[in-house]
Design a protein around this nucleic acid. Structure first.
Lengths: 114, 114
DNA sequence: CGGGATCCGTCTTGATACTG
DNA sequence: CAGTATCAAGACGGATCCCG
């Protein structure tokens, strides 16, 4: 995952961060649905599997887009929250949503876990 | 490649189209550098390999984002051009460029084949 | 029970060699 | 020049296991 960059191009570098089929969906769940826990991400309709989710959360944490905090002292619950860096992706998500809604038939804003 | 959709979410569906490490770079080359031929895409600094490029071009054509035309009657040269659908991705590219420039160190607008 | 880690079969990726 | 064939390596998806 820590590949050296392919070029100085901001598109190439951004794709190295979030250019796959899952990462932005995890960020979507945090940003628009307020999800914070491992199990909540698993409930999303796309059906991410546990190893992929764990991998992406760890990578997002390493890249500084997500912060992990213990939920309390006495449980293993973890909270995953967007950092400021992560939140700054909102315009990217917004424009992708707009493009998808306009150009891909039968897409629509889903509910929480639909 | 013709997977059935994971959900009606516009983000998920858009990622199924362009959510990988190469597709948007090919579109970048067409949109901002005016590249049209197979060989030109190969010259980009990220170093896409020929089978990946052929695969992505074919898929983009199938999805209606790119059109392929013979360059002339007497050569095998092909021209790849963005369709209107493909061109409509410009705002997506723009916001990704802006995000990358701002949030990833040492990124910059590259020249043609740099 | 929640949050993973591990294993395994399958699918995808990518580098290279090869072809018309 | 514009791809296709081949093949190794890696990613994915699912199931299972493990640990507090």
């Amino acid at each position: 995952m820590t590949q050296s960059r392919r070029s100085p191009c901001p598109i190439a570098c951004t794709l190295d961060l979030i250019g796959d089929r899952w990462t932005l969906l995890v960020i979507r769940d945090m940003m628009f649905f307020g999800k914070q826990r491992f199990e909540e991400f698993l409930e999303s309709p796309e059906g991410i599997s546990t190893n992929i989710l764990a991998n992406r959360l760890k990578y997002l944490e390493e890249m500084g887009l997500v912060e992990k905090q213990p939920y309390s002292n006495h449980s293993r619950r973890m909270n995953y929250q967007l950092t400021e860096q992560g939140t700054s992706l909102r315009p990217v998500l917004k424009v992708i949503i707009a493009w998808g809604l306009k150009h891909i038939p039968e897409t629509r804003i889903p509910n929480d876990n639909e």
